[in-house]
Amino acid sequence: MITFTSFPSSPGGEYDAVRRHRETDNDMDVDFDDDDDFSSNRLRLTLPGDYLTSSQAFMRGHGTYVHEDQVVASVAGTVERVNKLITVRAIRTRYNPEVGDLVVGRITEVQPRRWKVDANSRQDAVLMLSSVNLPGGVQRRKLESDELQMRNFFEEGDLLVAEVQAFFSDGAMSLHTRSLKYGKLRNGQLVIIPPILVRRLKSHFITLPCGVDLILGLNGYIWVSRHIKASDQAGEEGFDAEAVYSNQNDDIDEPTRGAIARVTNIIHVLAAHFVPLTDTILLEAYEWSVEQEEANKGLFQEDVAEALVASLHSRS
């Protein structure tokens, strides 16, 4: 079971929050001289300059350096260990992709036979024309006419969900949307949080009982939208291209709009308190907010936000 540490949000950002938390909780001091400390799955926080362990017993990894035979943190973040390798995963950092990751991105440029996509990584990702689902079947050959109609599929500013397929020689990731569960996003709202707060799950497509769908992109981009029934999605063969690649949002009723706004605000509150997101945590947070009959704007009040995080602690 992964536990998480909460602390009040402030305009100073995550770094100031970590500093205040460490000043008020002496139990969070990082000490890795004993191997038993690594057997716990607790989220351990550290600040730049903190001594972590002896360099004689462990090797330094990313986010650390060696000073006077000690491994020292060079960034503010969470401490991780793989065998004898100690690393610090920064709180604020760009997304580090892996093959098979689910990401949410925004089209930044249309180029010959490819699109450039902002996926919160160190450089734009690439979506090739040959890696998208086009009318007439997934496996059909891409023609010159398809290249001339690329802006009918995706254009600058469009949001999409895709999967990391491979990497180019320069390190840029190659995406694909060959399944109808991937593709253009509509009828929702984008929420951006630090990628470190998105846990790897069996499925990053989540449906809440309130009629809201979530896509938890591992790059820290989260899409909150109206629920789409499985019967509303066409089959892979002969799908309705105008519906799949449409830029028009559907009419959304007022209760659904309120549910989307509530879920969005809950994500902002949890991210401000450095709570990692999972399907279980999001469901429990939503149920708590409904039980307390808190209005959407009321969730941003400090006492309400702290009560929400405390309720998640009590249930974990």
Rank of each mutant, 00 (worst) to 15 (best):
S6R: 13
A90S: 15
S40C: 09
D69H: 13
L43E: 11
E14Q: 10
A125R: 03
Q70G: 08
L85W: 12
S40Y: 10
S55Q: 04
D34C: 09
S10T: 06
T93H: 15
D69A: 14
G105R: 00
D36G: 08
E80H: 15
G100W: 08
E98K: 14
R113T: 09
N120D: 10
D50R: 01
W115Q: 03
L85M: 13
D118A: 07
R122V: 08
N120S: 10
N133K: 10
M128V: 06
P48E: 05
S55F: 06
M28E: 15
F38T: 05
G105A: 08
R94T: 10
S9F: 03
S9I: 08
E80Y: 06
P112D: 02
G77E: 00
R60P: 02
V132Y: 00
E23A: 11
R20F: 13
L102A: 07
S40D: 15
L85R: 05
R92H: 11
N83S: 14
D37C: 06
A76V: 04
Q70L: 00
A76H: 02
V30N: 03
F7T: 08
P97C: 09
D69W: 07
V75M: 04
D37H: 07
D69G: 11
L52N: 00
G105Q: 02
G12C: 06
S121K: 05
N120W: 11
Y95S: 07
G61H: 04
G13E: 06
D124K: 07
M28P: 00
L45N: 09
D101Q: 12
L43G: 02
V82K: 09
G13Y: 08
R81S: 06
R92Y: 15
P97G: 01
R89G: 03
V30K: 04
W115T: 05
V30W: 06
T78L: 14
K84A: 09
V18L: 04
F32A: 05
V99A: 04
V103R: 00
D33Q: 14
V72R: 01
L47M: 13
D35N: 13
K84S: 15
S121P: 00
D118C: 03
V66M: 03
P8V: 01
Y51A: 13
R81I: 02
T24M: 10
A57I: 11
R44F: 03
K116C: 06
G100F: 04
V66Y: 07
G49I: 11
F38A: 09
Y15H: 08
G61Y: 01
G105L: 03
T53N: 12
S130F: 01
I91G: 07
V79D: 08
A57E: 15
D33T: 15
D34L: 11
D69L: 05
E109S: 14
S131L: 14
Y95C: 08
E109R: 13
L129C: 07
F7H: 09
N26S: 15
R113M: 10
G49V: 06
S121N: 05
N133C: 12
P48I: 05
D37T: 12
S40V: 02
V18A: 07
V30M: 05
G100I: 08
L43R: 06
P11D: 04
P8D: 01
V72M: 10
R113Y: 04
T78M: 13
R92C: 13
